[in-house]
Design a protein around this nucleic acid. Structure first.
Lengths: 236, 236
DNA sequence: TCAGTACCGTACCGTACGTTACGGCCGATG
DNA sequence: CATCGGCCGTAACGTACGGTACGGTACTGA
């Protein structure tokens, strides 16, 4: 949450597909109040409770966001806009920098998914994905800003590592998904199911280092006399 | 779903902590109808809809299950009782059998979590875990029959592998969690978020083989002249 | 035959919530 | 100063749902 907070304020954001306008400051305050209600375990996000919490009228909520689904969509988008990370700078890439970058990715990701905001938002999107016919954009938006966003951010680094002869893989997508699994393991599903799981900064650092070490053991291009530890080509 | 269906019918099940009686056949039919409603994307599980679908009265639902939460709990328990797997038989364990057992575990698990029943039930439990004060047993029950059950089933096999000198690890829990991550990766969270993801039997088999191969590369006790590929002790 | 039991079908109640409508306040604009 | 648009606060409406009550039916056992 507190990592790489980069609010898009100047200019219009050309990204994000269909033209979605950035909310006004007043609307941003409302969306922050909505996030607070979503996160609070003993509070439910209803249009009335949000109007009360944000000191605005329900009429304004409907005018600004259309309906409840539009409000949820805008809230998810607003939160997603807050946690965007910076891309890796191209250029010199040696083994040490690659390892540090991977560890940083892993630690950042564990920090994000263990945050109460991320847990609450994923729960909301998953609950929304249960109903088939309703506005199921939520699940896609969260997925886009969840695992898929991590993939988009990590893929260039992995390919740079391959170009530099530090990594060996055929499909960058598969390499990323393995890294994802080594980092997340059962943490996210257990958090979503309500399991108490203390993710202290120290344990996050240790987990990030472990995942990176394992990933390098699987995909590192060892320059030693023996080849890579794991051959990816050929089936069986 | 269709793997290792072992209905507990004879005698009372001494397991499962607080004494929970096995439902009568009529109640089992009702619980199956509840599962059908939970799975159906365009149907919601309400007491009325379940009474209609199961051709029973709401009064009977409340008499049998107490309240809505009891019904959900019983439904989750009922489904969990259906997918229990068999333990691995002790005795001779060589490298080939270990590999086959791991692959079987991985394939079984991918089959379970990609089943629509598992997805729907996990969604339900996650949605229920959002409200803090309500009967949050659901999340714990699903977790107990989800990752934790897989851990309980897999741990003995891993320790047998270590005793046989085939695996090398310090903490069996950590080894299991790594295996879990290699198997599940981002599949479960994407399925929960509504992502379409074709898990054909062929791809499941391939994924199970890949995860097992990677796990053995990380944790296998190589009998070659060089030591294990990954030292687990010592930090940094 | 008659009481008892278990169950179905349905009507009903209270509440929560999404959504709409209305009255009042305030700053801007002419 | 008058008017207008944006917004707040609140009341009101319709619906959905959890939970309860009641009448009707089939079966059992004395």
């Amino acid at each position: 949450m507190d990592l790489a907070v980069g609010n898009i304020q100047a200019g219009d954001n050309a990204a994000e597909g269909a033209g979605e306008k950035t909310p006004t400051p007043r609307q941003q305050a409302v969306l922050d109040a909505a996030l607070g209600l979503i996160v609070d375990p003993k509070a439910a996000l209803t249009m009335s409770s949000l109007a009360r919490a944000a000191s605005c009228s329900k009429e304004s909520l409907y005018k600004w966001f259309g309906d409840r689904d539009g409000l949820l969509t805008a809230t998810v988008r607003w939160q997603a806009a807050k946690v965007r990370g910076r891309p890796v700078r191209r250029g010199e890439l040696d083994g040490e920098l690659l390892k540090e970058s991977l560890e940083r990715f892993a630690a950042d990701w564990l920090t994000v998914i263990s945050g109460e905001t991320s847990v609450a938002l994923n729960r909301l999107a998953i609950g929304e994905a249960a109903g088939g016919g309703t506005g199921r954009n939520l699940g896609r938006i969260v997925a886009d800003n969840g695992p898929l966003a991590m993939g988009r951010r990590l893929t260039p680094l992995l390919e740079m590592g391959r170009e530099a002869g530090l990594l060996a893989f055929d499909e960058v997508t598969e390499a990323f998904r393995d890294f994802f699994g080594l980092v997340v393991r059962d943490v996210q599903i257990r958090l979503l199911l309500g399991d108490r799981l203390d993710l202290s900064p120290a344990s996050i650092r240790a987990d990030a280092a472990r995942a990176t070490r394992q990933f390098m053991a699987l995909y590192g291009a060892h320059q030693g006399p023996d080849g890579p530890a794991l051959k990816m080509k050929g089936k069986e």
